[in-house]
Design a protein around this nucleic acid. Sequence first.
DNA 1: TCAAAAGTGTTGTCGCTACACCCATGT
DNA 2: ACATGGGTGTAGCGACAACACTTTTGA
Lengths: 227, 227
Amino acid sequence: MKESLLIDNLSIDCVIFGFDEGKLKALFIKRNTEPCKGMMSLPGGFVYVDEDLTHVPARRLKDLTGLKNVFLREVGAFGKIDRYPERRVITIGYYALINSSDYKLDVGADAQDVRWISVDEVPELPFDHTEIFDAALIKLRKHVRYEPIGYNLLPEKFTITQLQTLYEAILNKKIDNRNFRKKLAKIGILKDLKEKQKNVSHRAANLYSFNKKKYETLVEKGYTFDF
Amino acid sequence: MKESLLIDNLSIDCVIFGFDEGKLKALFIKRNTEPCKGMMSLPGGFVYVDEDLTHVPARRLKDLTGLKNVFLREVGAFGKIDRYPERRVITIGYYALINSSDYKLDVGADAQDVRWISVDEVPELPFDHTEIFDAALIKLRKHVRYEPIGYNLLPEKFTITQLQTLYEAILNKKIDNRNFRKKLAKIGILKDLKEKQKNVSHRAANLYSFNKKKYETLVEKGYTFDF
DNA sequence: TCAAAAGTGTTGTCGCTACACCCATGT
DNA sequence: ACATGGGTGTAGCGACAACACTTTTGA
């Protein structure tokens, strides 16, 4: 990115979801500048004049986690007059889904400044970040019903149980295991890798990967994925 | 609105849908300033520094049609670098649903500058307005499946046939009349006004109004309205 | 009495829900 | 052999799709 001007009244904020220890979590960073220095907040950033808007969250994700080609969705625009204390700033909210095993937090210098927090333990946030976060979570819950995007939160190879636990965490309810498997089998978006887990102290589960082609066909047809 | 500064790099654009002559239409205005003077375009506007973002489309709607409390939904942010030719402007797209019998176009001086155009006859548009328009139509089609928002396009009192024609126009397909009525009866979002049409040269249809309470309950439950 | 739109029921199919037990593996 | 999670089938019910004729009204 070459040196260029930031547009100072337009920012983005990003809710980065991850799935770890059977829980849906989001990534927060501790603000190291005023205003609200010291509070945990959503990672955000400003737009360069010569940068596409959609590039901004992608760039921030890369800076923060090193990840590229992250799944990103727009949450919406947030533009109340006083949402930012110092001047008028309108922000576009996004959410990202990342596989948190691709991004284990550094235990180095900055470790205490970046944290995964379970979505039901999110602390008070600065500005309107609580509103943005809530909107993101609502959108995510809505979107997983209509598109099987959840796999973005899992490693390349995963088990059906992992996928189910994920859906249970997102939707915050128990799902019947047999029905879950049946439905997956019917829609056929999983590729059986004919591989098993290793080194687990119980029956080894089959591993699957995600079939994007099939997924796209289904989304076009307006399929719904209710569990 | 008192005199105050416009934020010159942030605008809104609005796709205003109406339903007339059995067709889904959108409102376009002829640009009377450069750039792209003379082309039909989406009505848009800039944000005042002391004005909430969501107020902008509402204000524009009011200016343009005289209507207040219009149903508005955000379509998304559009922020390609060169989307606007003269300087960097990021725009937030909205769509509005209005009852076009509340707003019959003036046949006065400005008449040729504002036009309802059927959604499948939309001409070439300036900037990225085609992209915004397409996104709005896609969102509308998606939204009517999950929320019975269509009634916003109809007068206060309407017949089931009108509602059906509307859905057919939005979804662009024929719907079975008996199944449509059955489904409506089951979900119970219509209030039977025990009134009939007048002065029609055929059997007078029953009039209904919309039951918002019920609607809200249903939306919370995540009901889907497939036809 | 004709034209034009309103309104009404039934049947078959498909998909969802609910529900309990055996299997494979490591310790 | 036991503990742990993996993986499987069926029956009943409710929702949806397909389908054609009678009713009301004004002209």
